[in-house]
Design a protein around this nucleic acid. Sequence first.
DNA 1: TTGAAAGCGCTACCAC
DNA 2: GTGGTAGCGCTTTCAA
Lengths: 345, 345
Amino acid sequence: MSRFETSSVNIGEVARRAKVSRSTVSYALSGKRPVSESTRRRIQRVIEEMGYRPNASARALARGETRTLGLVFPPAGNHYTDMQLDFIGGVTEAAAGRDYDVLLSVADAGEERSFQRLIGERRVDGAILMEIRLHDARVERMRESAFPFVTIGRISDPDGTAWVDLDYRTLVRRCVQHLSDLGHRRLAFVNRSEALLRSGYESAHRGQDGFDLAVRELGLNGAAYPCEDDAMGGERCAARILADHPETTGIVTVNEASLGGLYRGITAAGRTIPRDMSVTGIAGARWADAVTPALTAADVPAREMGRIAIDLLLERIAGAPARDRLLVPPIVLRASTGTAPRLAP
Amino acid sequence: MSRFETSSVNIGEVARRAKVSRSTVSYALSGKRPVSESTRRRIQRVIEEMGYRPNASARALARGETRTLGLVFPPAGNHYTDMQLDFIGGVTEAAAGRDYDVLLSVADAGEERSFQRLIGERRVDGAILMEIRLHDARVERMRESAFPFVTIGRISDPDGTAWVDLDYRTLVRRCVQHLSDLGHRRLAFVNRSEALLRSGYESAHRGQDGFDLAVRELGLNGAAYPCEDDAMGGERCAARILADHPETTGIVTVNEASLGGLYRGITAAGRTIPRDMSVTGIAGARWADAVTPALTAADVPAREMGRIAIDLLLERIAGAPARDRLLVPPIVLRASTGTAPRLAP
DNA sequence: TTGAAAGCGCTACCAC
DNA sequence: GTGGTAGCGCTTTCAA
């Protein structure tokens, strides 16, 4: 007999074969009531023989909890980045460790449909939201509904919400500081895409703030550029930077997906990294390592953030007050930054 | 017991307020029985007023289907690649389009636990398996259980299973052919990692077959190398290739994650791509574009494969016989290949 | 230590 | 065109 048939066995069948009531089987499984050792064993044997597994839908209905968490991530178009994949992996693994499943949902800022599926139909006990905007309709929606959720990234006024975020502001400032320490005086900031910025994309805005602030504080010259999330965007951006300010010798980027193109554009202009141009920023370690010379950067601890998100969410589900975590990973020195050249080339 | 009273509106409440029976509400929603226009409207109004959404668990229990599909992907350790993320995105979006949700499950080859959660507890109506091995315990398990599933990639003897795969054999042959046409005579093949090969990783083996075959047919010299899935692996691999056979002028790679390192290694050895060394292979478009010069490669249509997987799976769930799709995307000419140098450097 | 039975919220059959 | 109601498979009181 196929394993599949046997798994449509239900608790009644087990009870009959073990000559006990269904409740006893249930309690033997949950341990919520003492069951004599002998019957417990008998039940266990039958369960193994028949390959019984409690039906998740029935259990969810009876218990009022699904043991499933929602992971809301944006539809493509804007490409997925490595970071996002690592979030997904981190979240899923951490959830599995706590005996939760993860239900994926593609939903853009305003997407009502998927919200209704997840929360309205009670498919999940809580949700994690990725790709947060400073003013995010999804977050407001969740807040109103008093549904447990955690954001990866944080809204403009995050008080009372649970979130885990990278401190883009501080990280970008540190990058600027690093370049300043190396003697660079004219910097450029490569941000995420124009569209993302317009939509109020959180990390893009806070990164920009950090850049503006640091440049001002340190008395440097700086210009910021939005950049499409792909190699082509990076090339174009490099060209613009060098056209606008040929004396630029340092670049800070938060746009990992354009990194290859950025390098290509710089090289195409006859400059060598890091001799003529230093580059640093925030990126997934894989991207930072993929380019030559490898990028000195703050590595996004995406996997860890996924884990943290799960922890915070489970706390919320258990009724605890909202907590948050702001991470500031160290800048890893690789090979893409050096002292500023004496003369602007 | 659920803590969220707001959505504890149920069908009975709606029925009472609309002064009809619960069955009528159900039928008004499903359309499986004619309902007079006037009552339909009345019901609709009440539903909107109260923000009623049918509870997914209850519905799943009653209907015997969850409208959820499982996506089984391997735990990290071996890094996730871009390709995998695009699969996930493609699968999730396609599923959403058909009104299905996607439940993520990290499960390695032998992982029983997650199989039981997904299939045993009937959390999903069908499953998609990624990262297939030629002999894959998960696939056998599914096969036995007669549970609807589709693999991305195919096992050694895939007859009777539903799958979508890239024709690595043909694609690698085409790459070899391409290099041969350009006059290259000594080639190297950069495969996935040793560990993956040992585990019988499908695409790695079929790619290798294609390489061996093509090299023989075309009367070329070739050597194959396993390579770790990261930049460091690529560097090491480049070094080995050039040490073993300095006369190598063409490389075929199926290891996108090591691409940056491979380039770096080649460059570090004083060779220029494509003047002294041509590189081609199979990779996600983003990786191919990220390196300089951009990689001439067959772009993995991961998103499309995700969509196809969903189609095939829904067919299976509907009871149709297993189908499969073998894809052979074209090689996109970029900038990393050129005619063989006259003299080996 | 165990059993009986009342739900959980929805669907779909059987009646009218 | 509509209502009543028996399940779906499990959990958890209430009783013994």
